[in-house]
Write a protein that binds this DNA or RNA. Structure first.
Lengths: 215, 215
DNA sequence: GAGCATACCTACTCGTGCGTAGGGTTACGG
DNA sequence: CCGTAACCCTACGCACGAGTAGGTATGCTC
């Protein structure tokens, strides 16, 4: 049809760059509107590009969402892994991991947190989320396991995993809370989480357990 | 048009009854398909009624979903409130509350749990969920507060609330886990949660707190 | 500077599914 | 036995938004 007339010079950019711009826009729009309410048109417009380009580079809407989730998730995991060196004592590792986690969430209040919250519920993304959560749970569980062995104790694998699961869940919830409270301090939130997690875990590690009453 | 021909006798039922049937169907379909993938047609069909009736009685799709959430949520809260009598000691109350909670979730694995998981993410329902969660947090927080005062201790309100929030979050996560593991035992899950929650809370109540290292 | 791949666009198609218009039938009070 | 209200239906309008067809321009290679 007619040649582009309005804009002086549309920069032609290499694929890798455009992809990042699209992902940036997608994260923004997805977290503002939610997966379903977000339209590909809006994402394209926000990225300063036309819709077919988005389809050409990142695929369908679902694939695009997964791509967002994946990029942000990887960043988060790297932040945590970078902070919690495996040769530290358990409490120190836990503390650093938590601090990195809440720091990241706090710095991406309306990006990561909202995306993740969505993904947990939406069927097609459950698998992706489960994988990421699984990695976290595994890390926490192995941390507890290390500490336990160091004390000569042993706990059934399932139990450990479930406890780890609970701790990760509590962290997720506080992350939600943090995302909803712009004035809240990530560091302080991490400390609070540490209080709940460590005081409980520490006792578990010492072999103290709670049993249901005879009833 | 033509009179109904196929079925011998369509029962004409009073509104209150039909509403419950519709809600039953809606819960079923919403949790199987997810909010967006669920169609009003399918819900109507499953309820054994035609679509306009659903609109006449329960309103739009969103309103219908909220109605589901509300009915099931109320049932859950009643189950918990009925189990955790306020004149029991804190640990006993916590234990009974948790047992009721996981019992309920376990008995509604593909009803309540899935609905709630959806609602947490979907924007328009966030408010509804926040309200319910708020009630739970309040209960837990006041429980801790009672126990604290009994020991002559005092903790800043915000701290208490955040700890309660974390505990509720951990429970939600284990509820998800329970919903995803049909073979798991609710009672045992409750015990595990109690271990994490109470061992931590008990120490907090004794005035033991964890502080970040000087760094 | 011809060829070719890559970046990029406008302008559609088309399914899906919410919500409604408009009308029929059974119960029940008077 | 007649009105009126509550129950219930079939059949459609219509907007919205995912995904595509088909074409243009620009840079890079040889």
């Amino acid at each position: 049809m007619l040649a582009r007339v309005s804009s002086p010079t549309f920069k032609r950019l290499p694929r890798a760059v455009r992809e990042q711009q699209m992902l940036d826009a997608a994260v923004k729009v997805f977290s503002r509107r939610g997966f379903h309410a977000a339209s590909m048109d809006e994402i394209a417009e926000d990225a300063g590009i036309s819709k077919p380009m988005v389809y050409a580079y990142l695929g369908t809407k679902e694939e695009l969402f997964v791509a967002c989730l994946h990029r942000e998730g990887t960043r988060l995991m790297e932040a945590i892994a970078g902070a919690a060196a495996p040769d530290l004592p358990a409490d120190e590792r836990l503390w650093r991991g938590l601090r990195a986690f809440f720091g990241f969430v706090g710095a991406h209040r309306d990006g990561w947190a909202v995306l993740y919250r969505q993904a947990r519920g939406e069927r097609p993304f459950a698998a992706e989320v489960a994988t990421m959560r699984g990695r976290l749970v595994e890390v926490v569980a192995s941390m507890l396991d290390h500490a336990l062995r160091a004390k000569g104790r042993e706990v059934r694998g399932t139990d450990l995993e479930v406890v780890a699961y609970a701790l990760v869940g509590a962290s997720e919830s506080l992350a939600d809370w943090l995302a909803d409270h712009p004035e809240a301090d990530p560091e302080k939130t991490a400390t609070r989480m540490m209080n709940v997690a460590w005081l409980g875990a520490d006792r578990l590690l010492r072999g103290v357990t709670w049993h249901p009453p005879a009833d």
